[in-house]
Design a protein around this nucleic acid. Structure first.
Length: 427
RNA sequence: GUGGAUGUAGCUCAGUUGGCAGAGCAUCGGGUUGUGGUCCCGAGGGUCGCGGGUUCGAGCCCCGUCAUCCACCCCA
C-alpha cells in the first residue's frame, strides 16, 4: 500500500481484462472502416504547438487552457496532440496526398491529451477514433461520414442512437448570426446569467445551450429566437438540405439541434454529435463536422473536408456498463505428470502454432494443475499420464461437453480443429 | 480554473464518546502426486492515501497535500 508512484492525475492503467474489451471494440471498428474504404494513418503524438494553436482557434478552450505544451531539448515549441484533425491534415499536406488522388478516406486512433479537471469519462490522456474524408465538398460526403459514425457505434452494440445535426454555416454568416443574437438579447442583457453574459462576447452561439433555467425563461419571454439555419446563404442552405436527404436515403435517424455548436472554430456547414445519458455530465460520445477552410489555413490549396472523432473511453464505459464481455476463444490446458513434463513442453509449443495453450512451468503436482486449469477457464484439457504416454496416447477432455477421449498426440491438433470449428469459435 | 463529497487488505466495505485494525470476496496452502471449477479446514496480506498538529493515546479531531468521484466551465 501507499506505493511511491501513482499514475499522473487524469491517466489510468488498462489491465488485461480491460484491454481485451478495448481490442474487441477496435477490431470491430477496423472491420467497419475497412468496408467503408478507409485507410489507417498514423501520425506523431506531438506536433508543433503552433499547428494546434492555429487550427483549433486562439479563443478555443483547447488552446487557452487545455494544451500539454512543452519545449524539447532543442528548444522546439511542441504540444501533445489535443485532437487528431490538425496532425492528419499536416500529414496530408506534407506527404502530398492531394496530388495522388482527389479524395482520401483516412482513420486514426490513439491517445490524445487535454489538461482539465478529470471526472468520470473525462481524462487527461484519453483515446479517440478519428475519421477524415478529405477532398470532397459534396453533401453526400457529409451524409456518408455520419452514416459511418452511426455504423461504428452499431458495431459496438449501440442501437437507437440519436445523432444531433446542425449547420453552422460559413464563418461570415456565423458572425452575422452572433450579431443578431446580441441584438435579440439586448433588452434582457442585464438579467442574463453571468456565464451567458461572458459567452455573449466570447462565443455568442454558446449562449443558446446554457443550462441556466432563468436564461431559458428569458428566451421564452423574448420569443422569435433567431436561428442559425435562417441566416444561411443559398449555397449553405442547399448543402444542408442535401445532407439531410442523404441521411434519409441511408436510413439514418437524426435530430436537428439548432443550438449545436462545436468547440473548435474551424467547422463549416455541417456539425454533428452523439450523446449518451448514462454517462452523466460528460455525455458526448463523439462528434464532428465539415471544415472546408482548414487546409487552406494550413497553407495548402483550397481543400474541403469532413471528419469526426469518437471518444473511445466513453464508448467503452457504456459498453462495460451494459455488462458486455469480449468473447473469449476456446483454449487448451495441458496437464502433465513427472514422466511427461518434457513431452508436455514440446507438445505445448507445437499446439501453440494454432491454439491458445497453457502448460504448467512450475513442475506442480497433478491436483494443482487441475485446479489451475479449472480457474483458467480452458475449454480443453490435454492430460498426459505416464502410462498412456508409454502407449503413445494422451487424453483429451472437453469441459464443455464433459466428454473425454484417448488419442495419439499426433491426432490432437486435428481433433481440436474439428471441435472448435463445430462451435464456430476460434482460439 | 470554481464549488462540494470521499480516501481503511488486491476488490467491496464495517470500525461505537478518541482506547489492541475487522468482515465478505479474491490470493496461497492443506484435505486430494491420476480428473478441475463445489465443499471443508487453515494461512498470508495494513506505515488506516501522504505530511504535519492536538492528545497520555488518533483510522476517528484540526491544518496542509495528493488522488478519486459529483456539479460547473468545456468537451471526447
Amino acid at each position: 500500500m501507499a506505493p511511491k508512484h501513482q499514475a499522473p492525475r487524469g491517466t489510468r492503467d488498462l489491465l488485461p481484462a480491460d484491454t481485451a474489451l478495448w481490442r474487441w471494440a477496435e477490431d470491430a471498428a477496423r472491420g467497419v472502416l475497412g468496408r467503408y474504404g478507409f485507410g489507417e494513418l498514423r501520425t506523431p503524438l506531438f506536433e508543433d504547438y503552433e499547428l494546434f494553436a492555429r487550427t483549433s482557434g486562439e479563443s478555443s478552450d483547447v488552446v487557452q487552457k487545455e494544451m500539454y505544451r512543452f519545449k524539447d531539448l532543442g528548444d522546439r515549441d511542441l504540444a501533445l496532440r489535443p485532437e487528431f484533425t490538425a496532425g492528419v491534415l499536416r500529414a496530408y499536406l506534407e506527404q502530398g496526398l492531394g496530388g495522388r488522388s482527389r479524395v482520401h478516406r483516412l482513420w486514426s486512433t490513439g491517445p490524445v491529451f487535454r489538461y482539465g479537471r478529470p471526472q468520470k469519462g473525462r481524462y487527461r490522456q484519453f483515446h479517440q477514433l478519428n475519421c477524415e474524408l478529405i477532398g470532397s465538398p459534396a453533401p453526400g460526403a457529409d451524409a456518408e461520414m455520419i452514416t459511418l459514425f452511426v455504423d461504428l457505434y452499431e458495431a459496438w452494440g449501440f442501437s437507437d442512437l440519436t445523432v444531433l445535426v446542425n449547420s453552422v454555416g460559413q464563418p461570415a454568416s456565423r458572425r452575422a448570426y452572433g450579431e443578431r443574437l446580441r441584438e435579440w438579447l439586448a433588452p434582457v442583457h442585464d438579467r442574463l446569467s453571468a456565464d451567458s453574459k461572458a459567452r455573449l462576447t466570447t462565443n455568442p452561439l454558446r449562449v443558446l445551450d446554457t443550462k441556466d433555467t432563468g436564461d431559458h425563461a428569458l428566451f421564452a419571454e423574448l420569443g422569435n429566437m433567431p436561428r442559425l439555419l435562417d441566416v444561411l446563404d443559398a449555397d449553405d442552405r442547399a448543402h444542408w438540405d442535401a445532407v439531410l436527404a442523404g441521411l434519409e436515403a441511408a436510413g439514418v435517424k437524426y435530430e436537428i439541434d439548432h443550438g449545436l455548436v462545436r468547440g473548435l472554430d474551424y467547422y463549416t456547414r455541417t456539425a454533428f454529435e452523439v450523446h449518451d445519458r448514462s454517462l452523466g455530465a460528460q455525455s458526448a460520445l463523439g462528434g464532428g463536422g465539415r471544415y472546408d477552410g482548414l487546409v487552406e489555413m494550413l497553407g495548402g490549396p483550397p481543400t474541403p473536408g469532413v471528419g469526426f472523432a469518437i471518444g473511445l473511453d466513453r464508448a467503452l464505459l457504456v459498453i462495460e456498463e451494459r455488462g458486455f464481455k469480449a468473447p473469449a476463444g476456446d483454449s487448451v490446458c495441458i496437464v502433465a505428470m513427472d514422466g511427461t513434463r518434457a513431452a508436455a513442453t514440446a507438445l505445448a509449443r507445437e499446439l501453440r502454432r494454432e491454439f491458445a495453450v497453457e502448460c504448467d512451468v512450475e513442475s506442480r503436482g497433478f491436483g494443482a494443475q487441475m485446479k489451475a486449469a479449472g480457474k483458467s477457464g480452458a475449454r480443453f484439457l490435454v492430460i498426459m499420464g505416464e502410462e498412456e504416454w508409454q502407449r503413445g496416447e494422451v487424453a483429451l477432455k472437453d469441459s464443455k461437453s464433459g466428454t473425454q477421449e484417448t488419442l495419439a498426440p499426433s491426432a490432437l491438433a486435428e481433433a481440436l480443429r474439428v471441435k472448435t470449428r463445430a462451435t464456430g469459435e476460434t482460439a
